[in-house]
Nucleic acid binder design. Sequence first.
DNA 1: CATGAATGAGTTTTCATTCAT
DNA 2: CATGAATGAAAACTCATTCAT
Lengths: 201, 201, 201, 201
Amino acid sequence: MGRKGKESRKRLFEAAANEFAIRGFHDTKVSTIVKRAGLTQPSFYLYFSSKDAIFEELIADFHTHLRELITSFRLENGVKRKDVSKRVLAAVETVFQFLAANPDLTRIGFFLNPEAKQMKRDVTLALKENLEAEQRLGYFRSELEMETVAECLIGMIIHLTDLYLLPGIKDPANLSAEVVDLLIHGMLPNQSIPGQASETE
Amino acid sequence: MGRKGKESRKRLFEAAANEFAIRGFHDTKVSTIVKRAGLTQPSFYLYFSSKDAIFEELIADFHTHLRELITSFRLENGVKRKDVSKRVLAAVETVFQFLAANPDLTRIGFFLNPEAKQMKRDVTLALKENLEAEQRLGYFRSELEMETVAECLIGMIIHLTDLYLLPGIKDPANLSAEVVDLLIHGMLPNQSIPGQASETE
Amino acid sequence: MGRKGKESRKRLFEAAANEFAIRGFHDTKVSTIVKRAGLTQPSFYLYFSSKDAIFEELIADFHTHLRELITSFRLENGVKRKDVSKRVLAAVETVFQFLAANPDLTRIGFFLNPEAKQMKRDVTLALKENLEAEQRLGYFRSELEMETVAECLIGMIIHLTDLYLLPGIKDPANLSAEVVDLLIHGMLPNQSIPGQASETE
Amino acid sequence: MGRKGKESRKRLFEAAANEFAIRGFHDTKVSTIVKRAGLTQPSFYLYFSSKDAIFEELIADFHTHLRELITSFRLENGVKRKDVSKRVLAAVETVFQFLAANPDLTRIGFFLNPEAKQMKRDVTLALKENLEAEQRLGYFRSELEMETVAECLIGMIIHLTDLYLLPGIKDPANLSAEVVDLLIHGMLPNQSIPGQASETE
DNA sequence: CATGAATGAGTTTTCATTCAT
DNA sequence: CATGAATGAAAACTCATTCAT
């Protein structure tokens, strides 16, 4: 496949991503995708074997990138106690940034994908490992089941993404700050102040 | 509409709920619904004006019940500080119970409904008011933006419902305990222990 | 399926038979079939699950009837020597009559059916058994491999059907007389005259 | 057209022959043909003006060769009575050999060609003339309509080719022996024995 | 001599919905 | 209250064929 072909393929891919994101799988017509890519229907089948196939490729794309991102958070050694919040914050913000940078894929991967559950689990497990490592260092309460915590975090991220991030109402910095503050310190007052103090190594 | 008519309508309604929950809107066929209800296609249109109409009715049904539930949590006066956690816990558990009791509607209302956002906002706002009332009593950290907190809680609930509740992996009691513990006390260690102590008025 | 439905189905069946016979499988359009039956496309799928399905049903129909016919030739006991020719003649003529009476099915079953070979074998084997029975009575030369004879007969019938019968150039009586005369007596002259004499019991 | 061009053309021709033979006209795709020939679609149109054109060329090829063969059987003068069977046998065997040597073309020419009828007639007429010449010499029964005999012979050959020759179940020698024996002597017993004796001049 | 890229024209099939009874 | 029969409208996909290089 030469340069021109690659470009056509990409145009189709992007038009499809946007259409699927806006309209969902069934209400997206191949005819619309090709029109937006400046091509005719048969050309679509030159690059993708079916409407299902391009949809799955979009999902796989999202999945791959997101996993890469999560995996890249693996702990470096020697994180100091006082840095833990910062590190979690940085991670969550990075995720929000990634999602904001790929709104179409995000919508497809999170909200339109019937197999999203499996993908989310996948991401969750990667996250969980990071959290457990920090928990073993005593930075997090030992009673917490980190898998559930990871699920809760993912749940919040997904929901806030849907509500605030993708519509452009809030940005990654705000969202991550709020989520992480809540998650780290909880809702109760006062006693978290000495807690914050004790974060200092 | 006589008794027999009402029964037919109900059979259609329930068959539709289940089909939609399993297969989604587009992959659910009117022909399947009527088959499951032991009727023929024209009968369907005796009771519902269209496929869209029955779907919306299902959503409205879910929405109504869920709102009722949330609204019923309105604070009675004079909640004691030490009861706050318990009250939140009770509320969350009740929600999980409701969702578990209506799995088809839940799936439709939460995961298949393109207009779910509005509905979730609605529920969120009701929740937010409750939380703000308690926050004004000083039971929750004053810096917290209660709307976001409510959204986070909803996000967790939705996600855990999808992953654990509807598949029957965890039950309302477990899920609500985990969620509320995390939300109330956060992830950090130690300082939450005096915190819990100080909950006692 | 009520009366009206049955009639529609039959109209479709017959229109299809004729179209397939004239145009072959690929050049027959469902749209043409339904037009000829005075219906619209979706109605076709009310009665047949696909274009392939109706084609196969036509073949099966032909096959079934033809087999029945062949099987009905099973020898009654006590055929006299002098009747053998007559019986073969009658059988062949009946076959030609059947084919002439069902020209569309014949064309489909014999000339358009990719699985025709199997069907022909089937018919051949039924025929072979009849011939072998007569051979055991000494009415046919014992050196002859009756399966091949049956195949030859079938080959002639098929070919003559294509060339003379279906186009209406010759009729069953003529064709069967010619075929059977040739098959029974062969091409060589004279010596068949005492033979014919010896047929008399 | 240089050497390379000729080779490409030939590869296309042969790939097409095989595909058509296996799959029939409609289910053979130009894209498959070119793939098998190691070329791309536009190249196909360098050598053949259309899919129809190459198909017709294949048929013409078969036709030409077959006619040549049949024509070569023209009677030399002075065939002796006792040689007649042998000559017919030789002719039929030669035909079977030709068909066996060109299985793809045979399948196309005999079984896939909608215009095969005309071609078969053609061959039949050539055959008929030979037979009539021998009939006039008194070697065959004078009552026989030689055109029909020729058609019968062709019918048998075609059918046996389909069933036994192309699948490799029987070979030209066997097949021709069986066919000719049946055709010459018929099915009846006894009287053919003096007949065979009387063949000796 | 050959190809990468593209397309015109078509066809089967599906499904929500309605008519007539 | 219910059904047998029918349809309008569309959508995915295929394939022979050609343009531009």
